[in-house]
Nucleic acid binder design. Structure first.
Lengths: 206, 206
DNA sequence: TAGGCAACCGAACGGTCGTTAGGTTAGGCT
DNA sequence: AGCCTAACCTAACGACCGTTCGGTTGCCTA
C-alpha cells in the first residue's frame, strides 16, 4: 500500500472518529445507535466493522483520541520561559477551562461516567492517561513557583480539589442543562473563570 | 379503600422506588433493564406497570424523591439559633458533602447527565427543584453572616462555583472510578472536605 | 491484464428491549 | 354469598439493537 492511500485511510478513520465523538457527546453512548452513526458518517452500518471491531472499540477510540494531547498544552506552558510563574498559572487555568469546558476532551467526562460500570477499562484509562498527567503537569507549575518563592507551598490533593472541582462541575452543568435554559446566564464561563482564578492566586499567596 | 391498605400500597411503592434507585445508581438508566428491576424487586416485569406508567416515569419518580427534602437540612441549619455564623457555614459544608457525595440525591447527577438529552424535563426539574433551592439556602446563610459582620460580602455566582464545584466533582469522580482503584487514596473525602472548608472560610474573611 | 485486497454494500440474524393483552388471586364491601 | 378491584401473573408482541454473512466495487501491484 502506498503512502497516499495510507493517509487517505487514516483520514477516513479520523473523520469517523470525529463524527462519532460528536454524536456520542450529543446523545450519550447507549443513546447513539450504529444506525445513527452510519447515517451521520454516510456509510452503511456494516462498513464500520472494517474500521472498528465493535461499538465499544469505536467508543474507546473516540475517548482516547479525545483527550490525547490535551495534556501537552500544560507542559508547553510550563516550559515557556517568556512567562512569569504567575502568568504561567493564569495561562494554565485558562487552558484548563478551555480543554475541560469547551473542548471534547473534558466534555467526555459524563460519557465516561455513563459507561464506567460496564467498561471499567475506559474509566481506568481516562484516569491513568489523562487526569493523572494533567494533575502532575499543574503540580509542576506550582512547584516551580514555590521553588522560586512566588507561591506558598501547597497540599496538592486540596489544591487540585480547588482547581479542578469548579471547572469539571461547570462542564458537567453546561452539558446537563444545555437544552433547558439560558446557559450563559446560569453558568457564565468567563466570569466564573475570572473569579476562580483570583481565588486560586490568593491561595497561592500572590 | 381503608387506611391500612393505602399505607401498604404506599410502602410497596416506596420499596420499589428505593430498589430501583439503587439499581439505577449502580448501572445507569439504560444499563438497567426492566427485567433486572423486576428480579431485584421480586415481582414480574408486567407488574411494574400497575405502579408506574413507564420506565421513564419510574426513573423520574426515583430522581424526584431522591432529592426532595435534601434541601431541608440547609434550611434547618440556617434557623438553628444555637450556632454562630461560622458554625453554620461549617455545618452547611458538612451537610453538602454528606448530601452530594454520600447520599443518593447528589449521586444522581451523572444519571441525570446521562438522560438529560432524551428527557430534558428531568434535568430541568433537577435544576429548578434542587440546585436552585440549595444555592438559595446557602446564599441566605452567607447573607446572614454578612449582615452580622462575620463574613465579607460575596459575589454569589463565584462563591457557589467555589463551594459546589469541588463537591460535585468529588462525587462524580468517586462514581466514575468506584471500580477501578483505591478510591479513598485518590479521593479522600474527609481530608478534601477539611481543606475545602478552610479555603471557603478564608474567602469569607473569617 | 490478471490477481489481490481494502472498502463498502444490502440483507438478514439472534437477542434484548420496553410494553401490552389477558387471565388469576386475594381481600374488603354490600 | 356475590361482587369489585388492586395486585400480580404468564406469555407474547413489535421494534430495535449490535453484529455477521456473502457479494460487489475499484484501485494498486506484479
Amino acid at each position: 500500500m502506498d503512502e497516499a492511500k495510507k493517509d487517505a485511510a487514516k483520514e477516513r478513520r479520523a473523520e469517523i472518529v470525529a463524527t462519532a465523538t460528536e454524536l456520542f457527546l450529543e446523545n450519550g453512548f447507549s443513546g447513539t445507535s450504529m444506525a445513527q452513526l452510519a447515517k451521520a458518517c454516510g456509510i452503511q452500518k456494516a462498513s464500520f466493522y472494517h474500521h472498528f471491531a465493535s461499538k465499544d472499540a469505536l467508543f474507546i477510540t473516540c475517548v482516547n483520541e479525545g483527550y490525547a494531547g490535551a495534556v501537552q498544552v500544560l507542559l508547553d506552558i510550563r516550559s515557556d520561559s517568556s512567562l512569569s510563574d504567575v502568568q504561567k498559572m493564569e495561562a494554565a487555568i485558562h487552558s484548563l477551562y478551555e480543554s475541560i469546558v469547551t473542548s471534547p476532551a473534558g466534555r467526555l467526562s459524563p460519557l465516561i461516567a455513563e459507561v464506567s460500570r460496564t467498561m471499567p477499562k475506559v474509566a481506568d484509562g481516562f484516569h491513568k492517561d489523562y487526569i493523572t498527567h494533567q494533575r502532575a503537569a499543574l503540580k509542576n507549575i506550582v512547584l516551580d513557583g514555590v521553588a522560586a518563592g512566588a507561591f506558598k507551598p501547597q497540599d496538592f490533593d486540596i489544591f487540585h480539589h480547588l482547581v479542578f472541582g469548579p471547572i469539571v462541575t461547570l462542564s458537567l452543568s453546561r452539558e446537563m442543562f444545555a437544552q433547558v435554559d439560558d446557559l450563559d446566564a446560569h453558568f457564565p464561563t468567563e466570569k466564573l473563570k475570572q473569579g476562580h482564578l483570583e481565588i486560586i492566586l490568593r491561595e497561592l499567596g500572590v
